[in-house]
Amino acid sequence: MFTIEHDFDATIITLIDEGGPALREDITIRAADDRVSVVQFDPDSQTEVVVTLSLSQLRDLAAALDLPEGSYRLVRKAQ
């Protein structure tokens, strides 16, 4: 399950784990104009863990999910 909210400066997506007996904490994704942050509460340390990706890193991640093992460089086409 997930929710989507639109703030004035970002889109916020919350992923809610509904699978299996070992449920994980919710994940919040905040997409701004120049970056995407992924936040998850860590119950062991009682803190939020934040990972921030540039839009270039996010594009690479999206492409990597569909590629076999190897080293790649994405080249953007001129528009």
Rank of each mutant, 00 (worst) to 15 (best):
Asp17Leu: 05
Ala78Asn: 11
Ala22Gly: 09
Pro21Ala: 13
Thr28Glu: 14
Val51Pro: 00
Phe8Val: 01
Ile12Phe: 09
His6Ile: 07
Val75Gly: 10
Phe2Ile: 08
Pro43His: 11
Gly70Cys: 03
Asp9His: 08
Thr52Lys: 07
Thr52Trp: 06
Leu58Glu: 07
Thr3Pro: 05
Ile4Phe: 15
Ser37Pro: 02
Tyr72Lys: 12
Asp26Asn: 12
Asp66Thr: 02
Thr52Met: 02
Gly19Tyr: 06
Val49Glu: 04
Leu15Ala: 08
Thr28Val: 12
Asp7Phe: 07
Leu61Thr: 10
Gln40Trp: 02
Gly70Ala: 04
Lys77Tyr: 12
Asp60Leu: 10
Ser45Cys: 12
Ala62Thr: 13
Val36Lys: 03
Thr47Arg: 07
Gln40Tyr: 01
Ser71Asp: 13
Asp7Glu: 11
Arg35Gly: 02
Leu55Pro: 02
Ser71Val: 06
Gly70Arg: 06
Thr3Cys: 05
Asp7Ala: 04
Ile27Glu: 08
Leu67Lys: 03
Leu65Arg: 00
Phe2Thr: 07
His6Thr: 09
Asp66Leu: 08
Asp33Tyr: 13
Leu65Ile: 00
Ala22Gln: 08
Thr14Tyr: 03
Gly70Glu: 04
Gln57Arg: 09
His6Gln: 10
Thr3Lys: 06
Glu18Tyr: 04
Asp9Ser: 07
Leu58Tyr: 08
Leu74Ile: 06
Pro68Phe: 00
Glu18Met: 02
Ala63Cys: 04
Arg35Gln: 07
His6Arg: 09
Val39Gln: 01
Asp66Gly: 06
Ala78Ile: 13
His6Ser: 10
Pro68Ile: 00
Asp34Ala: 09
Gly20Ala: 09
Thr14Gln: 05
Leu67Ile: 00
Ile29Cys: 10
Ile4Ser: 13
Arg59Asp: 15
